[in-house]
C-alpha cells in the first residue's frame, strides 16, 4: 500500500489539538511550552470543557498562552496567577480554572500567592513549567536554577553562598494540607508526554470536582537559555535536572 493511500481521514491517529489554533507559537524551536500547550488543549477538549474553562496566563515565556488555546483566558500580573484563579474559581465554582506558570512566576515573585492558594485548598489546577531559567528576559537565574549552572546573572555558575539554593517548590507544595495532587513530569520523550497528559487530566478533574489544589510541575527545557540544541537540552535535563527534581507523584490524595 502506498503512503498516500494511508493518508485518509479514517486512518488518522494523531493531529494537532482542535483547541490549539493556527497562530504560530512564539516559542523558540524545541521549547517544551509547545508540547505542554498541546496537552492542555487536548485534555480540555477530551474532557468536553471547551466552553467551561478559564485559563490564567503568567508573565514569562508563556505570557501569550492565551493566543494559542481557544478558551477564555485572563492574563495575570507576574506571579499573581493563583490569586486571580482563586477569585475566578470561587466566583465561578463549576468551571475548570487553571493557571499556567513558569518557575520565576510560580516560585519566585509569586511564591506567596502560590503557597497560600495551595494552602487554602483552592480548587484550581496549576501547570508549572520548570526549566530552571528566565527565558523571556534573556536567560537569567531562576529560583530553580541548579547549583553551578551559568546564566546571564550567574555568569560563573550559581553559587549557593551568593545566590542561595535551587528551590524545590513542588516538594513544599506537597507538604501543604490544601493540595490534593502534586506531581512532577517531563515532556522530553513520547512516553513522558503521555504520562504528563494523564497528570494534567487528573489535575483538571480535581478542579472540576473541587478536590483541592493540584500542581503539575513539568520539567522543561530552554535550549536558547541553556545554549544547547533542543535534543542536547533534553539530554542535559535528563542527566542533571532529574537528580534534584525527580519525576513522579509527590502527593496524590485523589484516586
Amino acid at each position: 500500500m502506498e503512503t498516500k493511500d494511508i493518508i485518509t481521514p479514517e486512518n488518522k491517529v494523531y493531529s494537532a489539538p482542535r483547541l490549539l489554533n493556527d497562530s504560530t507559537m512564539h516559542y523558540c524551536p524545541g521549547c517544551s511550552h509547545g508540547v505542554v500547550h498541546k496537552l492542555v488543549a487536548e485534555v480540555i477538549d477530551e474532557m468536553g470543557l471547551e466552553h467551561n474553562a478559564i485559563g490564567i496566563a503568567p508573565v514569562g515565556c508563556a505570557v501569550f498562552a492565551y493566543k494559542y488555546i481557544d478558551v477564555d483566558w485572563i492574563e495575570a500580573a507576574h506571579g499573581r496567577a493563583p490569586a486571580l484563579a482563586t477569585a475566578a474559581k470561587r466566583l465561578n465554582p463549576d468551571r475548570l480554572v487553571f493557571t499556567y506558570q513558569g518557575d520565576g512566576d510560580f516560585a519566585a515573585i509569586g511564591t506567596a500567592e502560590s503557597i497560600h492558594a495551595a494552602n487554602r485548598g483552592e480548587n484550581i489546577a496549576i501547570i508549572f513549567i520548570n526549566n530552571g531559567i528566565y527565558g523571556m528576559t534573556g536567560g537569567q537565574m531562576a529560583p530553580t536554577t541548579l547549583e553551578g549552572v551559568k546564566t546571564a546573572t550567574t555568569p560563573y555558575g550559581r553559587n549557593v553562598e551568593l545566590n542561595g539554593y535551587p528551590l524545590d517548590i513542588s516538594r513544599l507544595m506537597a507538604q501543604l494540607d490544601g493540595t490534593c495532587y502534586v506531581t512532577r513530569q517531563s515532556v522530553h520523550k513520547p512516553a513522558a508526554v503521555r504520562q504528563a497528559k494523564k497528570a494534567i487530566r487528573k489535575a483538571f478533574e480535581n478542579s472540576i470536582n473541587r478536590r483541592g489544589c493540584s500542581v503539575v510541575e513539568i520539567l522543561g527545557t530552554c535550549s536558547s537559555g541553556w545554549k544547547m540544541t533542543p535534543h542536547q537540552a533534553n539530554l542535559w535535563m535528563e542527566e542533571h535536572m532529574k537528580e534534584k527534581y525527580p519525576i513522579g507523584d509527590l502527593k496524590n490524595n485523589v484516586e
Binding site: A76, A83, T86, A87, A88, L91
Partner: peptide, 26 residues
C-alpha cells in the same frame, strides 16, 4: 457573596482582578 481574607494586599487586588475579569462585581 464570596468573602475571603487574602494573604496580602497584593493577593487581594489580584483576586479582584481575577474576579472582575469574569464579569463579577468585586
Amino acid at each position: 457573596m464570596v468573602v475571603l481574607q487574602a494573604e496580602s494586599e497584593v493577593a487581594s487586588i489580584n483576586m479582584v482582578y481575577g474576579g472582575a475579569a469574569t464579569g463579577k462585581a468585586v
